[in-house]
Amino acid sequence: MTKRIGEVILSFTNISLSFGGVNALTRIGFDVKEHEIRAIIGPNGAGKSSMLNVINGVYHPQQGEIVFRGKARRGMNTYESAKSGIARTFQNIALFKGMSVLDNIMTGRNLKMRSNFLLDALYWGPAQREEIAHRKKAEEIIDFLEIQHIRKTPVGRLPYGLQKRVELGRALAAEPAILLLDEPMAGMNVEEKQDMCRFILDVNDQLGTTIVLIEHDMGVVMDISDRVVVLDYGKKIADGTPDEVRANQDVIDAYLGVAH
C-alpha cells in the first residue's frame, strides 16, 4: 500500500517558548506534510505537549514562525486554530463528563453549525433539519469507532479506554485537516492500544487526515508513523523516518543515558 503523502502543510522555524525564564522549547524547526502521520517523541519533560499546545494556539511562542497552508500565523488563539481545521485530543481526557457520548461528539461539530439560539429554541424548520444532518455525521463517527452501544451513556460512567475513543470521536467530528493526538494510547492495555492504532491508521487512510501525535510507546510510534521528530530538553535532536531515528546516536543517548 502506497500512501500519497502530499506537500508541506504546516511548518515551524525557530520556535522558542519559555515560561518565566524556563525554556520549554528552544529553536525548534520541523514540518508536517499533508496526509502523513508525524510523531513527536522524547523523554518526559522534553517539551512535546508544549509543542502541541503551540500548534493549536494554547501557547504563543516568543520567537519563531509557524506557516500553515502557506500562510504565516501570528498569535492565533485556540478558536481561530479550531476554525482553520486543527482538532486535538488531550493527555488527560478532557471530555464533557456530564454529557452523553452522542452530545460530546456533537459538540465537535459546533463550528459547522449555522443556526442561532432563537431557532434552536424553536427547534423547528432549518434548526431541526440542521440538527438532524449533524446527528447523521455524528452517527457515522460513532459507527466508525464502534461505540454504538454507548451513544446515550454519560461519558463520566465510561471506562478509560472508551473515553479515549470518544475523545478521538469528538475531534474527528470537526472533520479536521490536522488532528493532534496527545498520548492517545497512554494507560491502555494491549488490545485497547491495537484498537486505537487501527482507528488512527483508518482515519489517516480513509479520511486522509494529517496526524501529529505524541506517544510514549516506541513500538507503536515506530510502526505507524511516517516521520518522527525527537525532542529532548526542549531541543530537537533528531528528525526523520522511524528507521533513521532508531539508528541516531543522540536519540539512543537521550533515552538510555550517556556513559561518562
Binding site: 456533537m106 459546533n110 434552536d120 427547534y123
Partner: peptide, 25 residues
C-alpha cells in the same frame, strides 16, 4: 429545545471543561 441543541451543548461544555470547550471552537 435550547438545552438539547447546539447552544445547550455549548453551555454544558463550558461547565464541564472550559479549556476543552475553547479548543473545539
Amino acid at each position: 429545545n435550547m438545552v438539547r441543541s447546539n447552544i445547550g451543548r455549548s453551555w454544558m461544555a463550558i461547565r464541564d471543561m472550559d479549556m476543552a470547550a475553547e479548543v473545539i471552537g
